[in-house]
């Protein structure tokens, strides 16, 4: 008898980044498109503070994802520990998805909003995207935070706000290219600009 599937048997994509940079907004854009290409997806959100947040998350995926494939995982006020030093609670959540949905194709993991040093444990996420936004300052890539430098993909979100906060997108683009080896993609999650490029990168490097 073959053993039941565990977290090692499903591709996992981590979405990290500072508070309010657009992680949830990105996931809300990604899910319907990934769903359209025929994938069964689970979503784990870390550090959901209230029941209301959890319900809102479930509602926004109603029709796309069954309710029991959307869960919040509490990280004891340590968001980076939950994705880096000790991801055991997240791994347990993935295992419980697979008990009910052994053929699951992909799990998206949103980390709690954190600082620029937060990276994903490679045993938790096969690939991770780090989401920053233009509104937090155009000097973020140059700070060389491990989250930014090590990420498989850097997403620079809220391009629509750049002009209002005086952020220079060209500077962000060239700084990102200086500090990272992997790609960087500009997005606007309000309109969906750039989302297809993010999907293409995930398909290319995670789902093949």
């Amino acid at each position: 008898m073959s053993s039941p599937p565990t977290h090692r048997d499903v591709p996992t994509v981590g979405i990290g980044g500072p508070v309010g940079s657009g992680k949830t907004a990105l996931i809300k854009r990604l899910v319907p498109k990934l769903k359209d290409s025929g994938l069964e997806i689970g979503v784990i959100a870390n550090d959901i503070l209230t029941q209301e947040d959890a319900e809102q998350f479930k509602r926004s995926f109603a029709g796309e994802i069954p309710e029991d494939l959307v869960v919040g995982v509490e990280t004891g006020a340590c968001p980076h520990t939950g994705i880096r030093e000790d991801p055991s609670m997240n791994l347990a959540a993935i295992d419980s998805f697979l008990e009910e949905y052994p053929d699951l194709d992909l799990v998206l993991l949103e980390s709690g909003g954190d600082n620029l040093a937060a990276t994903f444990n490679p045993e938790l996420a096969d690939y991770y995207a780090f989401v920053i936004s233009t509104a937090e300052g155009d000097d973020i890539p140059r700070k060389r935070g491990p989250g930014v430098v090590e990420a498989d993909l850097l997403v620079i979100n809220k391009t629509d706000l750049a002009e209002h906060v005086g952020a220079d997108l060209d500077v962000m683009r060239s700084d990102a290219a200086d500090v990272r080896e992997g790609p960087s993609i500009f997005t606007n999650c309000k309109t969906g600009d750039g989302i297809d490029d993010v999907i293409a990168d995930i398909e290319d490097r995670v789902l093949f």
Partner: peptide, 11 residues
Amino acid sequence: SFLPVGSYTIS
């Protein structure tokens, strides 16, 4: 507390 068994999430 370095032991990765999720103790930091339990109260």
